[in-house]
Design a protein around this nucleic acid. Structure first.
Lengths: 194, 194
DNA sequence: CCTACCGATCGGTAGG
DNA sequence: CCTACCGATCGGTAGG
């Protein structure tokens, strides 16, 4: 029985799995160490603190969400086209990065300042970006919604929730889920089935 | 400066607020006591354990969800009518009982067995009830969805997420949010605007 | 990477 | 409702 070498990445990955399963405050460093088959103090050769693990995981994820978003919408001008691609990548990510999504959504509030505010600002940037697309679409007469804010929340959170029920060994894959949820999103803003 | 008398309900209410804010594992009994302006041991005159507080809060909430559901759909036979009312009460509850929804969604997994399984079964009963309505509607040719399971998840989680952004002092009230989200739900199953 | 150990804090109890 | 106190566990450090 040989053991993989301990690295910063392996510590982060074990932390990610356990934080997603039990929450940040529900996970002890001794459990992360046990998952890696080492003693707790050994972790400190690869991290500064438990808090830093959470911060790193949250920062990578929210940064990735924003990068995905810009890659999906930048250069596109049609609101329907922009919403379609923004939803597709956002929904897909929540099927392929379930642990990250669960940790960000549950534990960002457990971050200490100033990190908490910084991460919440990044999350809000994505939220506002998505809402602006809907506002633009309504203004252009392409979408029909009573409240862009409500529609935006509904679409966002619908996608986020994929992380809570998606199974890798389930009947539908990430691409199919992303396509169906994108269709839901478009019907919510009043654009019928494509 | 007088202080309200300590009761089982006041302890539960303080626990509910703090669990919703910081999570079950992120809340110390000393913080609940401080919020009530008493010392930690005094709490034990009104509860058996921290775990019991969580269990009581979760049980009351999931039981209430199921009661709401049955009050909304029992006696109705039309799938559209049933989905409409089931979504309306479910969405509305998440605007009026935000703390409860946040705690159930975040901390049910922190319950010890056998309570955890029992509470998860109750949650699943509601989930299956909602999905059955959609399956019935598809079978009757009233709804058009590719996957009742996906549509059911999307509608449920969209409603649950109301608890995460709704503000009592915001521009829209619980009834209006519930109506708009119910409209979203009906478009998701392919029933156009009413 | 380990053993040995630190102060702090946790949930909970004794006993009034 | 309180003071006093319990064993257990927490995140983290010393020092090799």
């Amino acid at each position: 029985m040989t053991r993989a070498p301990l690295t910063g990445e392996s510590v982060l990955d074990a932390a990610l799995t356990l934080f997603a399963e039990r929450g940040y405050h529900g996970t002890a460093l001794s459990e992360i160490a046990a998952a890696l088959d080492v003693r707790t103090p050994s972790l400190y050769n690869h991290m500064r603190s438990k808090h830093e693990l959470l911060h790193t995981l949250v920062e990578r994820t929210v940064t990735g969400v924003l990068e995905d978003f810009h890659a999906a919408v930048d250069g596109r001008t049609d609101p329907l086209d922009r919403l379609h691609h923004a939803t597709l990548v956002y929904a897909r990510r929540h099927a392929t990065h379930r642990r990250e999504a669960i940790v960000v959504n549950r534990d960002t509030g457990s971050l200490d300042e100033p990190h908490r505010s910084a991460m919440q600002d990044l999350r809000r940037a994505h939220e506002h970006g998505l809402r602006e697309i809907i506002v633009d679409g309504v203004r252009a007469g392409r979408f029909a919604v009573d409240s862009p804010a409500l529609a935006s929340f509904a679409i966002r959170e619908m996608c986020v929730s994929i992380a809570r029920w998606f199974r890798d060994d389930g009947p539908v894959g990430p691409d199919q889920v992303a396509r169906e949820y994108t269709e839901f999103a478009l019907t919510i803003v009043g654009v019928g089935r494509v």
